[in-house]
């Protein structure tokens, strides 16, 4: 018969073994993901840095490893700083964000409020309203490309309403093309805001709302003092997701206008894409891409740090 102490000792050893085995298993399980991330992150970034210091291009007739022979004394970065086309693409991207994201947020919030309690047909309407975000963005681009043709349905509806023959060339007018692109983005992504904000609204505890009602608070007071503060985190998440995704805007926009007319709707992704495929100046593209990546990483770092600080302050 083993003594109590012995049993405890064997148990401890067994637990230790199990611990080590667990840790090993955890390592093995995360390994494939780690390798994939390394494959796409570390090595490519080093290659990108290397190429960005040269004027290498796939047409230069040498392998990328020989790019050092085309070393150009940081010319890519210096050129970027004074490249007007880059700065206007950046501004335009920010402008698209400033128009689309608030519009999507407000429309999504309004719809979410309408869907807060039960009514006839709620489930069907809900499913229909979510459809745009599941449509392949490139296909959505073609849809709006067709809609905004000068002989297309948008003008047709406008003609019917106004009584005059409307034949606006939406996509070949710089500011109208911009509006058309924004409309397509808002059409496709308002549902995402709606979906997330509705989940947030439904998560607000019922008893608090009831208590406020009993105390005589009207709907607007309940909305401002209880619902909005309760939804704070969710609103931040929804806005962050859309800001990040909107910054990358490419598919719908490229199919509708290809960045045109001229460069009127050229955002950062379109700008980089054109340099990559038309100009083939890959050294320059690598430099731009690195600047974008570093800026975004810094922004993410600051955002996370602020968020953690706020959480610490709250707890």
């Amino acid at each position: 018969m083993t003594s109590f102490a012995e049993t405890e000792a064997t148990l401890a050893i067994a637990a230790d073994d199990a611990d080590r085995a667990d840790r090993r298993l955890g390592l093995y399980l995360t390994l494939p993901a780690q390798i994939l991330v390394l494959f796409i992150a570390v090595f490519p970034l080093l290659m990108q840095l290397y190429i960005s210091l040269t004027s290498w291009s796939p047409l230069s007739g040498r392998g990328w490893w020989d790019a050092w022979t085309l070393w150009n004394n940081f010319a890519n970065y210096l050129n970027l700083a004074v490249d007007a086309r880059w700065w206007s693409a950046l501004l335009r991207t920010l402008l698209v964000m400033a128009i689309c994201v608030p519009a999507e947020f407000l429309l999504g919030l309004a719809l979410a409020i309408l869907f807060m309690d039960n009514f006839r047909g709620k489930r069907v309407f809900y499913s229909i309203l979510l459809m745009p975000m599941m449509v392949v963005p490139a296909v959505a681009g073609y849809m709006f490309f067709m809609l905004f043709q000068s002989g297309g349905p948008v003008n047709n509806i406008a003609s019917a309403i106004s009584g005059h023959n409307v034949a606006i060339a939406w996509l070949s007018n710089p500011s109208l093309a911009f509006i058309a692109v924004a409309v397509a983005d808002i059409w496709q992504w308002t549902p995402l805001m709606f979906l997330i904000l509705l989940a947030g609204l439904l998560g607000v505890p019922d008893d608090q709302l009831k208590a406020a009602t009993l105390l005589g608070a009207n709907w607007w007071q309940r909305f401002v003092t209880i619902m909005l503060p309760r939804m704070r985190a969710i609103i931040v998440i929804a806005l962050a997701i859309r800001l990040i995704e909107n910054f990358k805007i490419f598919d719908t926009l490229y199919i509708m206008t290809a960045g045109g007319p001229g460069t009127a709707t050229e955002t950062i992704s379109v700008f980089i894409y054109k340099l990559t495929t038309n100009d083939l100046s890959w050294g320059y593209v690598a430099a731009i891409a690195l600047v974008v990546l570093i800026s975004l990483s810094v922004a993410l770092g600051i955002a996370i740090a602020r968020q953690t600080k706020r959480r610490e302050a709250a707890s």
């Binding site: 991330v37 992150a41 990328w64 992704s269 890959w282 990483s297």
Partner: peptide, 20 residues
Amino acid sequence: ALLQLRLFPPMAVMIPVMVM
């Protein structure tokens, strides 16, 4: 790292991917 991967525009990592 994965979150960051999502943050990056695909356009900004495509040069090395195309070379590779």
